Simulated scan of single mutants.
Amino acid sequence: MELIEQENLIFKAGDTGIFLGKVSENETHQHYALQLTVSLYDTFEIQSEGEVYRSEAAIVQPQVPHHLDSQGHPVLIFLFNPASAIGHFIGKHLTNQPVEDFHEIWIDYLKMFAKDLFKNEINEKTFLSACINSMAEFNDRCLLAKHKVDKRVLASLQYLDRHRREVISLSEISEEMCLSESRFQHLFKEHTGISYRRMQLWKRLISSFDLYTSSKNLTELAHKSGFADSAHYTKTFKESFGLTPSELFGASHLVVE
Rank of each mutant, 00 (worst) to 15 (best):
M1I: 10
E2I: 08
I4Q: 15
D15E: 15
T16Y: 03
G17K: 05
I18L: 14
F19T: 05
L20A: 03
L20V: 05
K22D: 10
V23C: 08
V23F: 01
N26Y: 04
L34A: 03
Q35P: 01
Q35Y: 02
Q35M: 07
L36R: 00
L36M: 04
T37F: 00
Y41S: 12
D42S: 15
T43S: 12
F44Y: 02
E45L: 11
I46G: 04
E51M: 09
Y53V: 10
R54Y: 05
S55T: 10
V60P: 08
P62N: 11
P62K: 11
P65M: 09
H67T: 14
H67K: 15
L68G: 06
D69A: 11
P74D: 07
V75E: 00
I77F: 01
P82A: 07
F89K: 02
F89V: 05
L94D: 12
L94F: 10
T95W: 06
P98F: 04
V99L: 05
D108Q: 14
D108I: 12
A114W: 12
K115R: 13
D116P: 06
E121Y: 09
E121S: 06
I122T: 07
F127G: 03
L128A: 07
S129R: 15
S129P: 02
A130D: 06
C131V: 12
S134C: 09
M135Q: 09
A136P: 00
N139I: 07
N139D: 14
R141M: 13
K146G: 12
K151E: 00
K151C: 01
K151A: 00
R152Q: 02
L154N: 03
A155L: 09
S156P: 00
L160M: 14
H163R: 15
V167I: 15
L170S: 13
L170W: 03
E172Y: 09
E172T: 12
E172Q: 14
S174N: 05
C178M: 14
C178E: 13
S180D: 10
E181C: 01
H186G: 01
R197N: 12
R197D: 14
L201D: 12
K203A: 14
I206F: 04
S208M: 04
S208E: 00
D210C: 05
T213M: 11
T213L: 13
S215F: 04
S215K: 07
N217F: 09
L218C: 03
T219N: 10
A222K: 01
H223Y: 08
S225D: 00
S225C: 08
F227L: 02
F227K: 02
A228D: 09
S230N: 11
S230F: 02
Y233K: 00
T234C: 03
K235D: 06
K235C: 02
T236R: 03
T236V: 11
K238I: 03
E239M: 08
L243Q: 02
T244D: 01
L248H: 00
A251S: 14
S252P: 09
L254G: 11
